[in-house]
């Protein structure tokens, strides 16, 4: 067992992990942060996306010990300080960008990373960026819309409801 320490959503977090413990397991099981989900075992679905030192990372693809000393952000830390939904979260609700909610934490974290690098993405850029995040419920239409709306673009011109 190895001791790891990191900052998760601005708070110090540490624990004893095996070498094979994945970051996503550490977050879910040791930290009790169950908002980050596991949808596959081949790094394909993106349900587990978190930010490590500001970059979007699939937390099933990184060992907990690799995140030693890192700043980690998860879905639980995304809301505004007063508890209200942030711009991206609010856009997902407003545009019905989620159904079962299982892919949603990963989608929101990926969307945040996209908008940081590309504040006004086109529809094609959003779709291309989200290729590592699978959603089985929404058909992506409203996720794409929500992310474009969160970037301040007018989404009324996208295909009619």
């Amino acid at each position: 067992m190895t001791q790891v320490s990191m900052t998760v959503n601005g708070k110090a977090a540490s624990g004893e992990v095996e070498g094979r413990t994945l970051l996503v397991q550490f977050l879910r099981e040791d930290m009790g942060l169950t908002g980050t989900h596991v949808g596959c075992d081949t790094s394909q679905c993106g349900a587990c996306v978190v930010h490590v030192n500001g970059e979007a990372v699939k937390a099933c693809t990184m060992f907990a010990i690799e995140a030693d000393g890192a700043e980690v952000a998860t879905i639980e830390g995304q809301a505004n300080a007063d508890g209200s939904l942030n711009v991206i979260q609010q856009a997902f609700q407003d545009h019905h960008g989620l159904q079962c909610g299982f892919c949603t934490p990963g989608m929101v974290m990926s969307a945040a990373a996209l908008l940081k690098d590309n504040p006004k993405p086109t529809e094609a850029e959003v779709r291309h960026y989200l290729d590592g995040n699978i959603c089985r419920c929404t058909g992506y239409h409203n996720i794409v819309k929500a992310i474009m709306a969160a970037s301040g673009q007018d989404v009324a011109a996208l295909a009619a409801e």
Partner: peptide, 21 residues
Amino acid sequence: SKRREDVRFLTGVGNYTDDIN
């Protein structure tokens, strides 16, 4: 109407079966 369940799903506090220990 906007979905009330979205708030918990969007903030990571949904309660899926694997979250139960």
